[in-house]
Simulated assay, not measured.
Amino acid sequence: MGHNLNFNVTTGRYSFFSVKEIAWHNLGQIVTDYTTSAEAFKHAGLDYEVVKSPLYTIGNDLIQAGQDLETADTQLTVPNYFANVRNDNNTVLGVVGKDYHIVQNRDAFSFFDAIVGGEDGILYETAGALGNGERIFITAKLPGYIRVGNGDDVTEKYLFLTTSHDGSGSITAAFTPIRIVCRNTLNASLKNMTNVVRIKHTSGAKQRLEDAHKVMGLANTLSHQLESIFNEWSTIRVKNEEVKKLIQLALCPNKETFDLLKKGAYDELSTNFKNMVEDAFAYAMVNDTQQMDTTKGTLFGAYNAVTGYYQNVRNYKDDEAKLQSIVMGGTAQNRAQKAFELCSGFAKNDSGIFLMN
């Protein structure tokens, strides 16, 4: 299976670092202690800059004359477009417009430092570059925890940031709680809120600083509300058949499958879908993390059955695919959000049945 981590031929190292945890096919630099942003920046091999370089082409007369494009002397400037180029190896990372504002890798770390007012408050856990270095990502742990039950079930608060240098999207920062006992990524956004902030590459430094504080405010608000919700869910009892129903609805991929579930036509469901449901249900019933006071036979445990399935059971073709699915708006994140909405509805209804809506 591929990994798509950037390999820097100049240094002979992969552009990735992680604290303690071995990941990404055992590649990159593993450090034993949390580092400063400057150290994380270097460990991850992100200490290169990106510059906008003019684009050129050749005249139509030379093309029609059949001249070799690579040896043609006459150059025409391509107006309003530029190539983003790495300054350390001259690799072209993408083509962008004149209004595109480069956010240097160093700026991404500065953005994180600004969120909590300095390096002492945030712990950089992973960072790296993909492809030729056109896309980078950072995960960092925030101070404090979300505590469920008597305090033994603890969720750490993380921020995830990704940005690209190829013009393919905005800077994205997401608040992502992670349950320590099983490393479940508990993606959930509350009503009228989102756990993601997107920042355009046309934004200036002042706007990015304002957005940094917006992300921190979002994280604080979400963590306080989620702690209250998860604690409530840990006291609500659910039956095994209700857990399975939640899993079926949360993992439901399309309207056709939903209609079959609604009329109880389980024999007509696809084998792939039924296998996913059975794997998630088995996780819910037997995994050690599902036998805690906060999870065994509770609504919080039912929710964790879905997030835990995608985090700990489901197979992915590579680490990047898992990252995309769980954190960056992919299938797992969408299914986790569906599970969150279903559990919220169950808690309000207290009817003993997950509604088919």
Rank of each mutant, 00 (worst) to 15 (best):
N272F: 07
A127H: 03
H165W: 02
D68Y: 03
A302Y: 01
E21P: 00
Q29D: 14
S189N: 11
Q225R: 15
A173T: 15
T32F: 07
Y34K: 07
G121V: 05
N195K: 09
A129L: 10
W24I: 09
V243Q: 00
K214R: 15
Q29W: 10
D350Y: 04
V313H: 01
C252R: 01
S110Y: 08
S164H: 13
T221S: 13
Q29M: 14
V197L: 13
L159G: 08
D350P: 00
A23K: 15
L46G: 03
S37P: 07
K214Q: 11
K206N: 11
I199L: 11
G151T: 12
V95D: 03
E210W: 02
L76W: 09
A65V: 01
E320G: 10
I63L: 11
N80W: 06
G301I: 04
T295E: 09
N312A: 00
G352Y: 02
T36Y: 02
G45K: 08
I171R: 11
A140M: 09
K42S: 11
A305C: 00
L62N: 13
V50T: 06
M1W: 04
P143W: 05
R314M: 04
T194H: 11
G297D: 08
T176Q: 15
D88I: 13
Y158I: 11
M216Q: 09
A72K: 02
K296W: 04
M216C: 03
V277G: 01
